[in-house]
Each structure stands twice: as C-alpha cells, then as structure tokens.
Amino acid sequence: MTEPVGPALARALLSRELRTLRGNTPAAAVAGAMHWSLAKLNRIENNKVTIQPLEVEALARHLGVTDGDELKRLVDLSLASRQRMWWREKHFPDELINFIAFENDATHLYAYQATFVPPLLQTRQYAEALTSSVLQTSPEDPAVVSLVDARMKRRETLMARLAGDQPPSVSQAIDESVLLRPIGGDDVMAAQLDHLVEMAGRDTVELTVLPLRLGVHPGLSGAFELLTFTEDRDLDVVFIETPGTDFLLTDAENTATYRRVMDELLTMGESLAEAVHKVRQAHRPQ
C-alpha cells in the first residue's frame, strides 16, 4: 500500500483482490483446499468478515501469488482491516458503524439534505437540539449524548483531514428550507449559519443551496450521503438514514444513481454564502 488506509476500505480492497485472484477457479475447490467452509470463503469475498494475516498469506499463495512484495501488500491490507477504531465502541446499528468507517477514508464526501444541516456540518448545539427533538427526549439523555458525541467526532476527524496534506473534497447540497428552520432557536441557528459560511470558504469544500423557487428537483426523492474513493469507482458507498431502519448501499448500480443525482444537484444550486446573506436580510429587524 502506498498510502495508509482505514479498516473499512482495507477490507473492501482485500476482499475484491482475493476474489479477482480466484478468477474462474470454483469457490468450493478453493474453500476445500483451505479447509474452510464455502460460506466462510463467500463471506470473505463479499466483504462480510475480516481475514487473519496468516490466512491471507496462505490463500494468496494457494491462488498463485509468489512475489514477496505483493504478499506483503495483501497482508498489510489484512492488518489494516483489523484495526480497532473508536466507532467500534459505539452501540449503533451496523449500517451506521460501517458508514462511519468508510467515511474515515473517503476521497470525496457528498450529501444532500432537505430538512436539516448535513451531519458533518453541524455545530454541537445544533446537533443537540436536532437529535433531542427527533428522539423526543432531553439533550441530556444518554442516547442523545452518544449520537451527538459521535457526530462531533466525525466532524473532528473531517476537520483534521481537511487540515492535512491530502485533504478530502466535500460537496454538499442543502435545501433552502434548512436555512430557514431555526432549530435550537435564533442564537443556535445564527452560530450554525456562521459555521456553514466558514466551511464554504475552504478550498476543498463546495456547499450549494437549492432555492425553493426551483420547485421540483432530483433531491426530492430523499436525503442521502455518498462517499467515493480514488482507489475504485466501484467502491462508492451511499448511506440513507430513516426513522426506522438505516440503509448502506454498496452495489455499483445503485450508487451510480446517487452519483448522477448529486452531480445534478450541485449544478442547480446557488452559493451558500449568498443564500445565508438573503436569509439574514429577510430576518433583520425593521
């Protein structure tokens, strides 16, 4: 590996490469040779489980890999995939945990939100007010605190990456109604708008606002977050959060649809700074 990667991306890359190495050899034959169940090999190749470094080396050798550097690269991927990161300590649904893990490595972070500020762009006070309202409990409730803490950790990680040598790109589209909804009250919303303007001024951050005058647009089908990776277009990940069940989409055919929607939304919007200015002008005391 030329650059370090986190556990989610490492596991995805490793599972893909092991499946490629197997080629046309029947899975049952490889599983038998490794003294594994067919189910175990299927889980490895479908990115459902991690695989120990010794097993990776043995499997790679069985599949014809003899080059020492290539074996080391595959073993390094296995080691990276087994790192224990902070999000694994959280008792969240698997879909959210896996999405946070991928987010840590994404090259480009996209999102569309129609009802509230995208998670990575929220201030703590805004996140507390929003989450306590959604969960219909107080901001001090442990469930609220846990979710907000995780959201702030995600934001902290993003800010650190943006300040690094290889910052990710961030492209997010927000419906104008989000700016008009004073979640947490006027003071909290004012601070949130300030933060959005500050973020929009960063070199690798693109924030756009879809004005209400547009009427219909592709984002009306629902909010989502999309992650892409320079390593491979087929590694795209989409996260959809709902009041009941969250969804993590990794199938290339499905994620390609969200790529197209996101591209269109980013071309339809207007400058976030201009939109915030209009909101503040409209609410200025006469």
Rank of each mutant, 00 (worst) to 15 (best):
G215A: 06
A10M: 10
R88K: 02
H195I: 06
P167N: 14
P142D: 14
P211T: 03
R151W: 09
T20I: 13
A252M: 08
V178N: 00
Q136S: 14
M199Q: 13
M34R: 01
R16F: 04
S78D: 11
W87Q: 07
L21S: 11
Q172G: 04
K40W: 09
H91E: 15
L158P: 03
T250V: 06
T123S: 10
D76H: 04
A33N: 08
H35A: 15
R280M: 07
R43P: 02
A12E: 08
L158C: 13
N104A: 14
V205Q: 07
S37G: 07
A27R: 15
N254G: 08
R154A: 14
A29Q: 14
D165A: 05
L193W: 09
V145S: 02
A173I: 08
S37T: 05
D175T: 03
G185W: 06
T25V: 15
S81I: 07
P26D: 12
T50F: 07
D141W: 08
P243Y: 07
L41Y: 03
E241R: 14
A143W: 05
S37Q: 01
T66K: 09
P139L: 14
D76M: 05
E103G: 02
E128T: 00
V261D: 04
P118D: 01
P243H: 01
A31V: 01
P182L: 01
E274N: 00
Q281E: 13
Q192N: 09
E3W: 06
